[in-house]
């Protein structure tokens, strides 16, 4: 069945769409009450975030927009040290979208929410004119356990910089699908709760955390360097990039440091905890290819450097422009 403007009218078609697709998949006592607002228990220090998801194609190897919309918001909460608890979701659906596709997205969201340990407590649906596109906004709420403080501004000279696995897989998977390049690259789209929590549970002194989404690792580490007024240096050989992604980047002239990930994060930890952090990440779900990639060094504040394979140094600036495939 195709979605029509009638599904956005607020009448019978709307309520059928909601109950058949969304309520059925997201079922829980709070949502099932169908009140105007979710009323939920909670106490302590709140973390709140929101994110909107726009991706072409809607389904890609390793994930879909539904899984993406849960992971993105859950991971943002995790990066502030919070334990994610509740999500809301808003769907903006263009007429012409297939209800079967919506059903798949909703199922995928529900599964990912279960995996991440969050409850979808509120939702909204709108239908607009268009050509079958779907856009999802999710907001998330979590609670920060007492005593935890992580911030991009807390990196100190000597700290170790880790990344939780292979770079660029989401970006490469989506771009391959769009450009018709055949490979087995799958999006890394995943909720990172287990990896992040295990760092804290094992007593790693974590100073800064951020998921390396749009703009990639280079963007996140430039943000750290700017917020902390420090200089970060990476070792080129230590950057984890799979052979297929490396080949893919070569074809299109892309740099994996700038490519988006949906299930990877950068962690800046106390130097003495670097080995422990690495072991913990490697043992966690989605973390087997984690690596220590560099450290905070003396140098010009706000700068990200790479030590290259020939022993040279280059500055890795923020991303300018859209990171288009390069031919010349």
């Amino acid at each position: 069945m195709k979605i029509t403007m009638a599904h956005g009218s607020g009448g019978k078609a709307t309520s059928e769409l909601i109950s058949r697709i969304f309520a059925a998949n997201f079922k829980n006592p709070v949502l099932s009450a169908m009140e105007d607002a979710a009323v939920v228990p909670g106490a302590g220090t709140l973390a709140v975030t929101t994110d909107s998801f726009v991706v072409t194609p809607l389904f890609f190897p390793g994930g879909d927009i539904g899984r993406l919309s849960v992971c993105g918001t859950v991971n943002d909460l995790l990066m502030s040290g919070a334990v994610p608890q509740y999500l809301t979701c808003g769907f903006i659906i263009e007429e012409g979208a297939e209800s079967d596709d919506l059903e798949r997205m909703a199922r995928s969201m529900a599964e990912t929410a279960r995996e991440a340990g969050v409850t979808i407590v509120a939702g909204d649906t709108k239908v607009v004119e268009g050509g079958g596109g779907v856009y999802i906004n999710t907001s998330g709420v979590g609670f920060v356990p007492p005593g935890r403080r992580v911030s991009a501004s807390l990196c100190r000279e000597g700290d170790a910089v880790l990344v939780s696995g292979y770079l660029g897989e989401h970006h490469a998977a989506v771009l391959s699908a769009r450009m018709g390049i055949e490979n087995r690259i799958r999006s890394d789209c995943a909720p990172l709760g287990e990896a992040v929590e295990s760092l804290f549970q094992n007593g790693v002194r974590v100073h800064a955390l951020r998921d390396a989404t749009r703009g990639g690792l280079a963007t996140v580490l430039n943000e750290f360097a700017a917020a902390s007024g420090c200089c970060i240096a990476l070792r080129e050989e230590s950057l984890p990039v799979s052979a297929p992604v490396s080949g893919f980047c070569g074809i299109l002239g892309l740099d994996p440091l700038y490519m988006g990930n949906e299930g990877k994060f950068a962690a800046v930890v106390d130097r003495e905890d670097a080995e422990k952090a690495l072991a913990v990440l490697k043992a966690s779900q989605y973390g087997e290819n984690a690596a220590v990639v560099g450290s905070v060094v003396p140098g010009e504040a706000g700068t990200l450097l790479v030590r290259t394979s020939i022993g040279g140094t280059r500055i890795v600036p923020e991303l300018y422009g859209e990171g288009l495939p390069r031919i010349c």
């Binding site: 790479v306 030590r307 290259t308 394979s309 020939i310 022993g311 040279g312 140094t313 280059r314 010349c328």
Partner: peptide, 24 residues
């Protein structure tokens, strides 16, 4: 040259100059 940081590993007596080879 920039990507691999070549200017940082050679003597300052060797200057690298970019010529008219970018079609854009």
């Amino acid at each position: 040259i920039s990507h691999s940081g070549i200017p940082s590993v050679i003597s300052p007596k060797i200057r690298l100059i970019s010529g008219p080879g970018c079609p854009v």
